[in-house]
Amino acid sequence: MRHRFSIMKRFTAKTVSPMLVLVLLLVIWEMSSRLLDIPAWLLPAPTVIVAEGIDGWGNYQHHLISTTQLAFFGFLIGATVGLVVAMTLHLLPAVKRAIYPLLILSQNIPIIVLAPLLVIWFGFGVMPKLIVITLVCFFPIAVSTIDGFRQTSYELLHYMHMAGASKQQIFTKLELPHALPSIFSGLKIAATYSVMGAVISEWLGANQGIGVYMTLAQSSFRTDRVFVAIFFIMILCMIFFGAIIGLEKVLIKGRGKEDES
């Protein structure tokens, strides 16, 4: 009983105190924008933002759906490319030696600055947007997956060698399941990147999406709408992140000990 009680206490302490801080911040924000008469185009009060969020649902709902789809498919393509690159480089060490340094180097180019080029080459359609998202997503996945393969337990590898396992068996029965936690940490990073990539690619030119909604709101000084967009981007990131954590819980088994420590 006491044990359960202490868990509950810890749970409430964990969630209640940040909640309190959040509420406090919102109250300060609301009070100061009312008392100090801050103009709404500069910093709208939270209540104004919430009101716009509710009233304007019909205005931005299709933007939201479009961005969600873009981020989702971009993430899927990025994750696939990342995993394929990681496996190829892992299974072909000679290729890895030749390409891996270049891969790291390529990440010194902020992908965002490539976006105008992509627009020139591929126009304003879905293609350049998916390329931007793929480019920002595949790298964290590829790197963490390669790391996961490299950190394969020496003891287990030794056992597999002694047991006479083939290279393919070592890969499917040992290296791949062993790398799963690393793959997932890459996927989690990539999930939030994909939303960011989607919004930024929409800024550059699109006819719908949260990014478009944001640029429109900004040019007409509808700061409340900018905040609504920011809020939904946060929610979208959290849903993506949560979905991946859920998938991780289902797929990663028997490592309770490692998780606790």
Binding site: S153, E155, L156, H158, Y159, H161, M162, A163, G164, A165, K173, L174, P177, H178, L180, I252, K253, G254, R255, E258
Partner: peptide, 19 residues
């Protein structure tokens, strides 16, 4: 030649994700 004998190492070397 690999895999000709059955082997138990010093540490149990069990696969943590397998039952």
């Amino acid at each position: 030649q690999r895999g000709a004998i059955s082997y138990t190492p010093q540490s149990p070397s069990l696969f943590p994700w397998r039952t």
